[in-house]
Design a protein around this nucleic acid. Structure first.
Lengths: 248, 248
DNA sequence: GAGTGGTCTAGACCACCCT
DNA sequence: GGGTGGTCTAGACCACTCA
């Protein structure tokens, strides 16, 4: 089978098949195996190429559509979309911000302003479903793309059964990577979205003058349903293109 | 079969089965047929009650989960969520704002500030895929809940093959209703989401002092893939609770 | 271990597009 | 009319929860 120039080996014990196919096809799109606006193969062909049922291909395609990477037209086919040179992200998909930045061709970075063990406040304890005397790990970070700040994050992590040396990992980069490193990969999040203007959020040399942010107030959950992290990410208005595909 | 106290008659020629079931179950939840936090019947039971395949029930349940109305727990069941008295809306689902407001127990209203036929600007013509000398219908509206403004809308509608008397309908209320009245129901929209602070957006007696809005810049499409409406809705920060359920 | 959700399959039928 | 996407079905197997 010919699946572009890329290998595709489904990996049991990992993500679902449809998610693996989605990721594989996303890479094909972002690497311009298909030119912007070009028609991609039909669902039947893809199902045969990837050796899965058509429904599985459809699931993957609909996720790519949600992210605004393809445009599916009934009776005609699916076409890759044109999007500028900005960072385009779908909100439905829970992904590492760093990963998204990298895929869009920028170099992600993280600057840690603060990180500490402390007791949770009432709201944090409630979100994380822990008692008020249990320590949590608190972080203040800035996420950058090509050195330019795109977001500020304020997060608390539930550290029940986390050792100190594992906590040190958080100082090095992507939170998702750090969590993954000890088998605590969040699989879903509930987010509330808000517009915020405040001078108190940004910091550092490239603190945005506007003080205008898109706030994602969210709690992340593990596969077993327990919350692992809660907090807010403030995206600097204009530096990230958030797409939502809405359907009836 | 007993499906709560409500009838359920699938209607061919209308929405998909899973969407009809979603709407039916949403009504059951919002009317508190199940108390907040209560477990709802299993997928197997629901599939039997509604006389559909389990996959169809699942599709409906996942949409309700996206809207934050239920919480699905693997191996355990689906539970209705607790949410305050605010207006909770999922962003993935394309729905009439008025409809959402009504369902949450408030009385929706619309105030029209301006409506006119005019030529499109370049951006509008491009979004609607029409030429620059084709008239469009432009509207400025405020959407209210219990008399309080929750959003300001600036929209242009493609009026190719729309008669004048049909255009008059727009002055009366929900745009979705007006479009539907002559068989032009949008089935999907691509939205970009932004945080905006501006004194130029709000108007009228209850113009918000903060000037802070969550902007949904969107283009609506018909089933045949053609754009029918484009514009921006500015939600007054804090009056609408936008929920996004994010998954890997 | 019984019950429940998570995923995938193979096949079917329909609606729509295009030539 | 042939190709393509949109939806639904019936059944299967697995992973997880809870008593």
């Amino acid at each position: 089978m010919s699946i572009g120039k890329r290998e595709f080996k489904p990996d049991k014990n990992k993500a679902s098949l449809s998610n693996q196919i989605r990721d594989h096809m996303r890479a094909r799109i972002l690497n311009q195996e298909w030119q912007p606006g070009e028609k991609i193969p039909s669902e039947f062909v893809l199902a045969n190429d990837y050796q899965v049922a058509r429904v599985t291909i459809r699931t993957a395609l609909r996720m790519l559509e949600s992210q605004g990477l393809i445009d599916i037209r009934h009776g005609s086919g699916a076409y890759t979309t044109n999007f500028g040179k900005g960072i385009r992200a779908g909100l439905q998909e829970l992904r590492s911000i760093s990963e998204t930045i990298r895929e869009m061709g920028f170099t992600p970075g993280v600057v840690i302003r603060a990180s500490e063990l402390r007791l949770p406040n009432k709201a944090e304890a409630e979100e994380l479903r822990i008692s008020l005397d249990e320590n949590i790990f608190y972080m203040e970070r800035a996420i950058t793309a090509d050195g330019k700040v795109v977001a500020f994050s304020y997060d608390t992590v539930r550290i029940t059964d986390l050792s100190q040396n594992v906590i040190n990992k958080f100082s090095t980069g992507s939170v998702f990577k750090a969590l993954e490193a000890f088998g605590k990969h969040p699989v879903r999040a509930m987010s509330e979205i808000h517009a915020i203007k405040s001078e108190l959020i940004g910091w550092g040399p490239s603190k945005p003058k506007s003080g205008l942010y898109l706030q994602l107030k969210q709690t992340h959950f593990l596969r077993d349903g327990f919350p692992i992290m809660t907090g807010s990410t403030y995206f600097v208005e204009g530096r990230f293109q958030f797409i939502i595909h809405r359907t009836i």
